[in-house]
């Protein structure tokens, strides 16, 4: 006795059609680890659930020449981890996706869902922002691509138009000497929502940082791309002074709230601490001696 409909279309077109037809009452089901919780506590009451896991493009990982990848929105964290090449080239993205929840959750939770849940604390998002990932979106009017940091509009809100579905992410080709890392602060060792999350992606040439991107989570209404921090790193040897400058930039970029998970002062300070640690890991992975 329920008025909810469950659909599991086999093609993206069908999915978009069904989702668009449902208007505001539709919900996309990827891993379901957020959606089912929201349905249970009554914050979400969908009329139509569109399960996208039967659609090949949304559930696969494809390599692009030069170290790039196209990752389906409904690929689970565990599937990302089990892709050896992806893990080697984009260790930060993979580790971020694998910090979402327990082993049980990792088998279900997806980067697409993490982004579309719209939480500023989603773990995979800062790593994807740092990675320079591009989001592939399909809607009634066709396909478009947009930088990942442009998708979140605020807590629980997205810059998507009616009927649009996130299909996947493109990770760009990777120059030699590149790597990434993601660290988050949680009070426990597992099972918590990030109090602060930090993703750093960088490229080293002879020890000098030639490119960098920094993503920060849980310190503002949306995940932030901190260009000031990246600028502090680029051109440096990632020495203490450069890291300090980038850390200060991260702290300065924070616009956090006091809540049950952390205080403004704490989040602001920790953002800087995490930047230094994350950048050091990324640099090591990129081959810094």
């Amino acid at each position: 006795m329920t008025d909810i409909q469950y659909l599991a279309p086999r093609t993206l077109d069908e999915a978009v059609k069904a989702f668009a037809a449902a208007a505001g009452a539709g919900r996309i089901l990827a891993g379901g680890t957020d959606l089912l919780v929201q349905m249970r506590n009554g914050t979400v009451r969908p009329g139509v659930i569109v399960d996208i896991k039967k659609i090949a493009e949304v559930t696969s990982i494809e390599e692009i020449a030069g170290g790039g990848f196209r990752i389906g929105a409904a690929v689970s964290g565990a599937a990302l981890r089990e892709h050896p090449k992806l893990r080697k080239i984009w260790p930060g993205v993979v580790e971020a996706a694998n910090l979402i929840g327990s082993t049980q959750i990792q088998g279900r939770a997806t980067a697409g869902g993490n982004l579309c849940n719209g939480s500023p604390a989603g773990d995979s998002v800062p790593a994807l922002v740092a990675a320079g990932a591009v989001v592939i979106i399909q809607g009634p009017k066709g396909r478009r691509e947009v930088a990942v940091e442009k998708v979140p509009a605020g807590p629980g809100r997205l810059n998507l138009t009616a009927g649009e579905i996130v299909v996947g992410f493109t990770l760009p080709p990777r120059p030699k000497g590149s790597s990434d890392a993601y660290l988050r602060m949680i009070p426990r060792t597992e099972m918590d929502i990030a109090v602060v999350g930090c993703g750093v992606s960088l490229t080293l040439d002879n020890g000098t940082c030639t490119a960098a991107r920094v993503g920060l989570g849980a310190v503002a209404p949306t995940v932030l791309l901190v260009e000031e921090a990246a600028r502090a790193l680029i051109g440096s040897k990632l020495d203490a002074a450069a890291l300090e400058k980038a850390a200060v930039a991260c702290s300065a970029a924070c616009r956090p709230i006091d809540d049950k998970r952390g205080t403004i002062a704490y989040r602001t300070k920790v953002a800087g601490v995490l930047l230094k640690r994350t950048a050091a890991i990324a640099a090591e992975r990129a081959g810094r001696k």
């Binding site: 009070p187 426990r188 060792t189 099972m191 918590d192 929502i193 049950k260 998970r261």
Partner: peptide, 9 residues
């Protein structure tokens, strides 16, 4: 999730 009892790790 937010009432943080120790987990095994």
């Amino acid at each position: 999730l937010d009432y943080r009892m120790p987990v095994s790790s």
